[in-house]
Design a protein around this nucleic acid. Structure first.
Length: 280
DNA sequence: AGATTGACCCGAACGC
DNA sequence: TGCGTTCGGGTCAATC
């Protein structure tokens, strides 16, 4: 599934290819793609603008246009944003971005959860994203102290906490498991139990897990492909995710699988210790 | 066929 | 006990 490392891989591949191009038109083949907006609204804002940047906020891609417009896209579970190499009909094509001089981009999404929304200016796009997203892991604002503060008082499991986009942006099911393992923290520990030392470890674990994901071009468990249609290899580097029964790379104990917040959760029962709720 | 999963929504449980 | 906040489960969609 596309999480921060997968989205960042796509962003970094596409940006140099498309900046300076004119977005001639946004052709929406599936009206669900722009829900709750209409395809005409999105086209009205975007068509004709010159691309100045392709940015990432959490798991969102933000295409910035010179007239101020922003095309905000989310891949959700199975979306792909691909450099179109030809006009061959692609299965599950939801939208095509016509670029001049090109190449065009194709938004392909088998489960139709992905979205493309448009905003007339950067400020309104930021308002939309700010309302949904917390601190960016790779920003200077993300520190162990901020992490402690965000988790303070929360009874929800650490895994649930990490999945919340409005606290720390960009972490999904894969990198939550990987970050917790690197930090030596149990996914079911209450988030509010984090003390200074734990926050330092979790902070480092989050960054290391995300960096590894980016380094290996993202994880292609299922539908994920990079902008060129290639698979990443980050899944070959997983420490615990999808490794039920395999030895923990740190201590050798068998990796266990459980369910937290309705999601499959992998952890090492020996070296990911469970914390108790902090008394106050 | 049931499992899968991110964002959103809503009812329920929590804690001060 | 009251009330605002937080948490978890359901929902969507489609594939194998």
């Amino acid at each position: 599934m596309p999480e921060l490392p997968e989205v960042e891989t796509i962003r970094s591949q596409l940006e140099p290819e498309i900046v300076g191009n004119r977005l001639v038109s946004v052709e929406v083949l599936d009206p669900l793609w722009t829900e709750p907006m209409t395809p005409a609204e999105v086209a009205g804002i975007c068509d004709g603008g010159v691309i100045t940047a392709l940015e990432r906020r959490g798991k969102y891609l933000v295409l910035a246009l010179d007239q101020g417009g922003r095309l905000v896209m989310h891949l959700r579970m199975t979306g792909n944003l691909l450099i179109s190499e030809d006009e061959a009909a692609q299965r599950h094509l939801r939208a095509r971005l016509r670029l001049e001089p090109g190449p065009d981009l194709s938004f392909v999404d088998s489960r139709r959860f992905g979205r493309g929304l448009a905003f007339p200016d950067g400020g309104s796009a930021d308002d939309y994203l700010d309302a949904r997203l917390g601190v960016e892991p790779f920003s200077a604002d993300f520190t162990p102290e901020v992490l402690t503060e965000l988790a303070a008082g929360r009874l929800a499991p650490l895994k649930s906490f990490l999945l919340r986009q409005d606290r720390v942006a960009g972490i999904g099911n894969i990198y939550a498991d990987e970050a917790l393992h690197r930090a030596g923290l149990h996914p079911l520990s209450p988030a509010g139990s984090l003390r200074g030392e734990h926050s330092v470890r979790l902070h480092a674990g989050i960054l290391a897990a995300l960096r590894a994901g980016i380094e290996f071009g993202g994880a292609s468990i299922d539908d994920y492909r990079d902008a060129r249609g290639e698979q990443g290899t980050a899944h070959d580097e997983f420490l615990v995710h999808l490794r039920e029964g395999e030895p923990c790379p740190r201590c050798g104990a068998a990796v266990r699988r459980t369910r937290v917040a309705g999601r499959s959760t992998y952890f090492c029962p020996r070296c990911q210790r469970r914390l108790r709720r902090r008394r106050r």
